[in-house]
């Protein structure tokens, strides 16, 4: 099935099996490797990305549902590598990742959380993101999201 979609602002046409998970379209067809496979059942969040602005778990999202839609992956979160998204800036400042494998999913979830709640409390963050990290970066993720909120709000004011 031929799908037309916009991936990180780039119009893309791909011919794939309609039921193929969007994750594999992004990784293996569009060659964007930042979105990760973790569980295949939408349980861990490593494959999180945006479809028309909604946060979804792409391992369990049939590619055909993305037809005609706008996809944003971790590679499209920042304007470019010298102008990082506040979440990525905070992630570096707080030194969050260890193995780093789950982090793109967490950063996508964090950026979405801040869009919906610009001033989250630690409890909002704890209850708002259910992704899995096995290295145990949880304390730093919470700290980094609080910092990212500040960076984002300061940026708006500035």
């Amino acid at each position: 099935m031929q799908l037309s979609l916009t991936i990180n602002n780039k119009p893309t046409v791909l011919d794939v099996e309609p039921e193929m998970p969007l994750l594999w379209l992004i990784r293996d067809e569009a060659q964007l490797k930042g979105t990760k496979f973790g569980c295949g059942k939408a349980l861990c969040g490593a494959c999180s990305l945006y479809v028309d602005g909604d946060l979804i778990r792409s391992c369990s999202y049939p590619a055909q549902l993305a037809n005609g839609k706008k996809i944003t992956t971790i590679e499209g979160l920042s304007e470019n590598e010298t102008h990082l998204h506040p979440v990525q800036q905070a992630w570096l400042e707080v030194q969050v990742p260890q193995c780093g494998y789950c982090q793109s999913g967490f950063m996508m979830a964090a950026a979405k959380l801040l869009e919906e709640n610009p001033n989250p409390t630690a409890d909002d963050i704890k209850n708002g993101i259910s992704n899995i990290c096995r290295c145990g970066t949880h304390p730093r993720i919470i700290k980094a999201i609080l910092l990212a909120a500040k960076l984002k709000n300061d940026g708006k004011r500035g």
Partner: peptide, 9 residues
């Protein structure tokens, strides 16, 4: 290793 990991290289 963190710049690459934050940029999801």
């Amino acid at each position: 290793d963190l710049p690459d990991k934050v940029l999801a290289k």
